[in-house]
Design a protein around this nucleic acid. Structure first.
Length: 292
DNA sequence: GTTCCCCTGCGG
DNA sequence: CCGCAGGGGAAC
């Protein structure tokens, strides 16, 4: 899924839903790739804790607990945080716009083999589940005061940046601007969709070397990335493949995208055919006329 | 810097 | 059947 906007949508939905609730049931799947803390230990550490706060750092979520320990979550490519007893998130309908699934999709929601963590609460209200078919997500328990190397290496959050931080990372580098955007070390939270969309609005070709991008362009680029991300958050994120909000409904930002996965279609500005290429091993989409 | 890998599902 | 997918880390 999930880039910064989708994680922020998830955070905003879950925050009022989780805060002040006491965990009294923890069900974990068998140990696997996504558990950075062994499931058995996770279960032991979470049981009885009350959730105090939810924070987002780039594409990570941090769940703060009453003993000052924290749960670090990353959704990877296909991770979903879901509230139980809502419409099924198991399959998205094709090209549905708007917020809700159709009545036909309102089937009972139950955990499946991809549900790795289930949290139940002492108030007996709806549970919260973490589901991730590809297991590229991450779950880690951080003891009180503990930091994590994954968080420590993150650059400034993309929504907080002004462009000078990105420009500062250009020194002595020759990589493509898109490759730098995808690294989380200068600007954190930008993934493949919003990198392509931001570069389009800034009229910068994704393969341009950072050595050729001026500070003013950098500020513009970051401004456009923020504009795209803020609009995406407003519309519930991009539900292009797996992302759904915790209640199972889809976001609709995919309907507003200008270039991502639009190769072969006309540019919405100049009608030139949108091109597809690979940059930094990632699928890349751009308008050859608008972007230089 | 690229390349490969983690893993599952889907579309061509 | 093969190639590809919103991520990211390790190994060349």
């Amino acid at each position: 899924m999930p880039e910064l906007p989708e994680v922020e949508v998830t955070k905003r939905y879950l925050e009022p839903f989780l805060v002040q609730r006491q965990i009294n049931k923890v069900i974990v799947s068998a140990d696997n790739y996504l558990f950075l803390t062994p499931p058995k230990e996770l279960k032991q550490q979470l049981h009885g804790r009350t959730i105090q706060v939810l924070e987002r750092r780039a594409k990570y979520l941090l769940v703060g607990l009453d003993n000052q320990s924290r749960i670090l979550l990353h959704l990877g490519m296909t991770g979903q945080l879901l509230t139980a007893n809502v419409p099924s998130p198991l399959r998205l309908l094709s090209s549905t716009t708007g917020a809700s699934l159709t009545p036909e999709a309102q089937v009972a929601f139950r955990p499946d083999e991809h549900t790795h963590l289930q949290l139940g609460f002492s108030d007996q209200g709806p549970e919260v589940w973490f589901r991730d078919p590809r297991k590229f997500g991450k779950v880690k328990w951080l003891k009180p005061g503990a930091s994590d190397e994954r968080l420590d290496k993150l650059g400034i959050d993309a929504l907080e940046a002004d462009g000078s931080e990105l420009f500062a990372a250009f020194r002595k580098r020759k990589i493509a601007i898109k490759a730098l955007l995808l690294q989380q070390t200068a600007l954190a939270g930008v993934g493949n969709i919003y990198a392509d969309e931001g570069l389009f609005l800034a009229q910068i070709h994704p393969e341009r070397s950072v050595a050729d991008v001026k500070l003013a362009e950098c500020r513009q680029l970051v401004k456009f990335i923020q504009q795209v991300m803020e609009r995406s958050i407003e519309t519930g994120g991009s539900s292009i493949s797996d992302f759904v909000k915790p209640d199972g409904s889809q976001g609709s930002y995919q309907d507003e995208r200008q270039v991502y996965a639009r190769q072969g279609m006309p540019c919405r500005v100049c009608k030139t055919t949108i091109m597809h290429t690979v940059v930094a091993t990632r699928s890349t989409h751009y308008c050859p006329k608008c972007q230089r």
